[in-house]
Design a protein around this nucleic acid. Structure first.
Lengths: 102, 102
DNA sequence: CACTTGCGTAACCATTCGGTTACTTATATA
DNA sequence: TATATAAGTAACCGAATGGTTACGCAAGTG
């Protein structure tokens, strides 16, 4: 059972989960409310995300709060960005960078 | 049959194929020589890569040369990089950028 | 204590994935 | 023309994936 970040983010539902909890921790039921699939399905997606370190769970009473942990993105970013020069150019990259600085 | 870039790069063999042809086009048999799996298996991996636009094939005689097309990486990069601030900081990002400029 | 709520997990199912071998087709070459 | 080479594809197979429903259990609440 391969369990790496590349595989974890291959599923669109899991990417949406990450989008959801990027800025604030949410408990599992709240996350599941945002999807049409069942709660157990979301539970398993989150399990996969925790198994590769992308999500950390903190239990608070009977609620399990899910928090995104983006450190694991470095592996993906490193791989993708080594090819950036091939799909954009330095000036574009600089422009984008400066825009983000504003 | 979902066929998007996220799913295409989820497989480690496909990422290796991209690494192989990143700097020079290679024909299919040459690519397959670098792996232990069979040529048809590689052929199907490359088919998946072409279906999502990551690889372009140019026939030259009886050889099919595979070229990487990194434009499709933008979708992945955009998604990952929007969270960069969470796993590094602006100064790190700037440093990395300046290093690349050298 | 009885009940509700939040969540994990087991069992099951259809589909997809990644691999194989065998075969076919197209292009070059003796 | 006969043969060798490059590569796609079909048929098959076991394992993984993503979903479901049913159930169990821990933590609050009446």
């Amino acid at each position: 059972m391969r369990r790496d970040v590349f595989q974890a983010i291959a599923d669109p539902t899991r990417r949406e989960i990450i989008n959801l909890i990027a800025h604030r921790s949410l408990n599992l039921n709240t996350i599941a409310d945002n999807f049409t699939v069942s709660r157990p399905a979301i539970s398993r997606h989150i399990k996969i995300l925790t198994e590769c370190g992308l999500v950390t769970i903190t239990q608070q009473g009977r609620e399990h709060y899910c928090e995104a942990n983006f450190k694991q993105f470095k592996e993906v970013s490193d791989w993708i960005e080594q090819y950036r020069i091939f799909w954009t150019d330095k000036l574009d990259a600089l422009g984008k960078f400066l825009d983000e600085e504003k």
